[in-house]
């Protein structure tokens, strides 16, 4: 079973995302900011990270850069999931090593489509 870490400061979003991921047969873990997410990754690296941009203490892009500094390459697969929906943010995310980008609001179909794009389904 693949392991996905959902990083979002909204408990509701984490719950919705985890339910969809659970249905898609992912084991899920949650973090409410980048610092907590990084701690989880140091303990046990997930296969996939669903990552919000705007987070307290360490935001999504800072987290991603820190993660890629510690672990180079494409793994784990990082998919942004954020209300930031402009080309500048998307380009910055891809440049920092994200594989896909979901613009909120999302639904089950979008999560499925994007996970299929990154070969996670």
């Amino acid at each position: 079973m693949k392991h996905c870490l959902v990083v979002d400061d909204s408990r509701v979003i984490r719950k919705v995302a985890c339910r969809i991921l659970g249905d898609l047969r992912f084991e899920t873990d949650e973090a409410e900011d980048g610092a907590a997410a990084l701690e989880i990754c140091r303990r046990q690296m997930p296969d996939l990270i669903l990552l919000d941009w705007n987070l307290p203490t360490m935001n999504g892009i800072e987290f991603l850069r820190a993660l890629r500094r510690e672990h180079e390459g494409k793994s784990p697969v990082v998919v942004f999931c954020t209300t930031e929906n402009d080309v500048a943010h998307i380009t910055e995310a891809l440049g920092a090593g994200a594989s896909e980008y979901i613009m909120k609001p999302f639904d089950r179909e979008i999560i499925e489509s994007k996970l299929a794009e990154v070969g996670m389904l």
């Binding site: 929906n85 402009d86 080309v87 998307i90 380009t91 891809l94 896909e100 980008y101 979901i102 613009m103 999302f106 639904d107 179909e109 979008i110 489509s113 994007k114 794009e117």
Partner: peptide, 23 residues
């Protein structure tokens, strides 16, 4: 719409082949 461009379309293609107009 933002929903339509997120179904089946890889993000790289969205950036490469589309321009944003509002939402």
């Amino acid at each position: 719409s933002q929903f339509e461009v997120q179904r089946g379309l890889p993000i790289q293609r969205l950036v490469r082949h589309f321009a944003q107009e509002g939402e």
